[in-house]
């Protein structure tokens, strides 16, 4: 959990600083961090909050940016569908991308159903705590922390490092090129829409490539 923690920690700190610099009070920023717990949605919503956009459009933007989690949640179904609802919802909510990446990479091997649940929940709770502490450090230290673009890029490299081993899967490199190019080209689209398009089309291309190689 070291790399995911480092990535999510730096990311949380950057998000915390951004919330306060946008004009949220300390209480508001901490509450947002605790309740929303989705860095990309928070960063996307901030400019809209500052601009005084309609409430519905801010919430819809968050929904759009978070839609990729919905797609990712399908990967949990196989292992956790039979859990009662009161355990399924917290487990799903805590499963951020880096927890899911770690789970898919090594959390399943040699574990029974209960072991897998414990692994994912452990990863989820750990990353939640790291995120909250880092975010609060960012919120309280917004004026004094030497947060520069370089730190934000190191945080992005840390989450990138997590998914790099997955590039061995057939089709993934083509999917990566597709998603990267589309994400860069659609960066001026309304928030979240470009990322969602890039992810969906990249996944489609990767899937076709993988199937095309089957005997």
């Amino acid at each position: 959990m070291f790399i995911p923690s480092l990535g999510i920690g730096l990311w949380g700190c950057v998000t915390g600083v951004a919330m306060v610099q946008s004009g949220l009070s300390v209480a508001q920023a901490i509450t947002m961090s605790l309740i929303v717990y989705a860095g990309s949605a928070q960063l996307a919503a901030l400019p809209l909050i500052v601009a005084g956009a309609p409430l519905v459009s801010v919430i819809l933007t968050a929904l759009l940016v978070n839609m990729r989690f919905a797609l990712a949640s399908a990967l949990l179904v196989q292992d956790f569908r039979s859990l009662p609802l009161r355990r399924r919802i917290p487990l799903g909510t805590l499963t951020v991308e880096s927890a899911l990446a770690a789970f898919l990479d090594q959390g399943r091997e040699g574990r029974d159903a209960a072991g897998r649940e414990h692994y994912l929940l452990g990863a989820g709770v750990t990353l939640w705590l790291v995120w909250q502490v880092a975010s609060i450090v960012g919120i309280l230290g917004a004026g004094v922390l030497p947060i520069s673009d370089a730190w934000s890029w190191i945080a992005q490299m840390a989450i990138l490092a997590l998914i790099a081993p997955m590039l061995r899967a057939r089709g993934s490199i083509l999917g990566l090129c597709t998603a990267a190019a589309l994400a860069a080209m659609t960066v001026h689209w309304p928030v979240g829409l470009g990322l969602l398009t890039a992810t969906v089309l990249g996944a489609l291309v990767a899937m076709l490539r993988q199937l095309g190689h089957r005997p």
Binding site: S40, R68, L71, A72, A74, L75, E97, L100, A101, L104, Q156, M157, I159, L160, L162, I163, M166, A169, G171, S172, G175, L176, A179, A180, A181, L182, A183, A184, G194, L195, A198, T199, G202, A203, A206, M207
Partner: peptide, 13 residues
């Protein structure tokens, strides 16, 4: 199955 990986790629790209 490719979605979590590509979402991260899309964020960084």
């Amino acid at each position: 199955g490719f979605v979590p990986m590509l979402a991260i790629v899309g964020i960084v790209a």
